[in-house]
């Protein structure tokens, strides 16, 4: 198990290094000069040149790469070009929105998606099953920005129950912050819940035909008890895989939802930073996203191995 974890961890570190190189290089190729962007179209070339020097943009690329990576290893992500504030601070502030948002969406999709999937599997072929699966299919097909707009129109513009967007900082009014996240997390959760329901149903239908369910039934358990005690646990394996992938997807999906609900999240930060050519900020934020995603993968792998001992043995030489 230790060896397994270690190997996965090395893979994780290597992924990060390659990602850092690719991000740095790709963004360096992007046309556009942050100094010109800041000073606008009436600035003299002199002013632009002075600003370039101040921002350290006159230094050759390899040198900038090394000092960037070295800085990050020490926890220093550099200073944003356009916002003149430490990158780490800017990103950290945005995570206070994006992380809770993704987690809420995740929780909603689990709480809604899994029971519906189980219900559909138990009523396989019945009207309820069809109804749930049609709804889930629709849920997957609806784009979340559109669903978000719909939610705003109904609950914010029409009923005025919830704010149409925006975010109150947590330390100011926690209840208001929470309220601001309800509609966006619903919008984000809809497709995820639908996917989970479908996966859960299929997995459970698969295990229901297995011998051990029949054995459990023979032991005297009702079908419900047998499925609940023996079926669901076994069916969770594929669901776990999907969940790991979904979290990464959720963090990325927040970009669109954050725009619809004008939330100050990481997605919007990256989006504006790209258009302003605030490359150092884009790089820092992208690295953090990659760390989050790969770390989730790593954890999923480990969790997987914990749930299923066979996997762990197979990968140990």
């Amino acid at each position: 198990m230790i060896l397994f974890t270690l190997r996965r961890f090395l893979g994780f570190a290597a992924t990060l290094l390659v990602a850092a190189l690719v991000i740095f290089w790709l963004l360096d190729l992007l046309p556009g000069d942050p100094a010109q962007f800041i000073l606008g179209i009436n600035a003299t070339p002199d002013s632009v040149a002075r600003l370039r020097v101040q921002m350290g943009l006159d230094v050759p690329a390899p040198e900038r790469f090394v000092s960037w990576v070295w800085g990050m290893l020490q926890g220093d992500f550099g200073m944003s070009y356009t916002q003149r504030a430490p990158v780490a601070e800017l990103i950290w502030a945005r995570l206070a929105v994006t992380l809770p948002l993704s987690i809420f969406a995740m929780v909603i999709s689990i709480v809604v998606g899994l029971p519906l999937g189980i219900l559909a599997a138990r009523r396989r072929g019945k009207l309820l099953d069809t109804a749930i699966m049609v709804t889930a299919q629709t849920g997957v097909a609806i784009p979340n920005f559109w669903f978000g707009m719909l939610l705003t129109l109904v609950f914010a513009v029409g009923l005025r129950w919830l704010p149409p967007g925006g975010f109150t900082p947590w330390n100011e009014d926690g209840w208001a912050s929470l309220r601001g996240l309800i509609l966006p997390s619903l919008a984000l959760a809809l497709p995820q819940a639908s996917i989970l329901a479908r996966v859960m149903r299929t997995a459970l239908v698969d295990v229901t035909g297995q011998d051990y369910i029949r054995t459990a039934r023979a032991k005297g358990l009702t079908m419900g008890e047998a499925v609940w005690r023996h079926g669901v646990r076994n069916a969770l394996l594929p669901v776990l895989t999907i969940l790991g992938l979904q979290f990464a997807y959720l963090v990325a999906g927040t970009i669109i939802v954050e725009n619809v609900f004008y939330l100050p999240g990481l997605g919007r930060l990256i989006y504006t930073a790209i258009s302003e050519r605030d490359l150092i900020l884009v790089r820092g934020a992208t690295i953090i996203l990659i760390v989050t995603v790969t770390a989730t993968m790593l954890l999923t792998d480990i969790a997987y191995a914990l749930v299923d001992p066979r996997l762990r043995e197979r990968s140990t030489p």
């Binding site: 129109l153 914010a156 513009v157 149409p164 967007g165 004008y262």
Partner: peptide
Amino acid sequence: YVFISDTATLTNALLAGD
């Protein structure tokens, strides 16, 4: 000053009195 870049979102925020 609230920053809202999307026109549809801005419309909703105005209509909702936000």
